[in-house]
Amino acid sequence: MKTEYDVIIIGGGPAGLSAGIYTARARLTSLLIEKNMVGGLIADAELVENYPGFPEGISGYDLTQLMEQQAQIFGLETLTAEVNGIKLKDGLKVVQTTQGEFTAKAVIIAGGCERTKLGVPGEVEFTGKGVSYCATCDAFFFRDQPVAIVGGGNSAISEALQLTKFASRVTVIHRRQELRATRILQEKAFAEPKIEFLWNTVVESIEGEDVVKRLQLRDVTTDEKSTLNVAGIFVSTGLNPSTNHLKGILALDEAGYIITNDKMETDAPGIFAAGDIRSSSIRQTIAAAGDGAVAAIYAERFITHAAK
């Protein structure tokens, strides 16, 4: 396999695929490296209703498959590998992966985010035994049983609504007094008789025997403790950037997101960042795709300029 490219894109979600469409179409040799399959987090979404051009909505999986096809038409190459690090050598960027080293004139980091874990006792132990991070996948296993979902954002509330199709009761556990989810989702959730809300509440531990049986909860305003019997707990508390391997290489913000300017340039010349991994990203598919385009255009200019 070829190991030298004009551009290497790390991450195969909407940001990386959009960047790939632009760089490949600009006739830059382009390699996209993804550790799983392309698609990113949005590929899990049952329905994307706010991506322009799809008035009926489209599944996140179908949307990203279309993006991949479009990028491949222009010649984007993809590689399945994990990236362990990036180093600079003779003005080139060396991307170290589980499939060997690849060099490029410019790198676009679009590695996105991973779902946050709760970090409470019982979570790891009961993963796959009642603790789930994918309501679409696992709602089926909780037919006529009570479940809880932790979180208050768009993902959490969409997933709560999905869970009502199977579960007998869905308790939304949220650490604040109000939801962050968009108004249209809130209205649907408040109108759904199977959904109940526990405000200002956090999960302290997950308990059971073989499988999840109950949650220990705490009210953050009164410190009062309580127990909730559930067969399942779905975690949808937000996202963490996948930047552990970039510490000490690029400037990151306090939460670990990559700091860029409005050209998607990081503090290392020729290294760009796009999408959810970027500090101040609004973490929406359309914005990630936009970031990818901006990063690709400035990566092309960087390469052209460096050649002069």
Binding site: N36, G39, Y61, C134, T136, C137
Partner: peptide, 11 residues
Amino acid sequence: WCRPCTMIAPI
């Protein structure tokens, strides 16, 4: 209905 299942299948 499981998207991650679809994604792991080629692997």
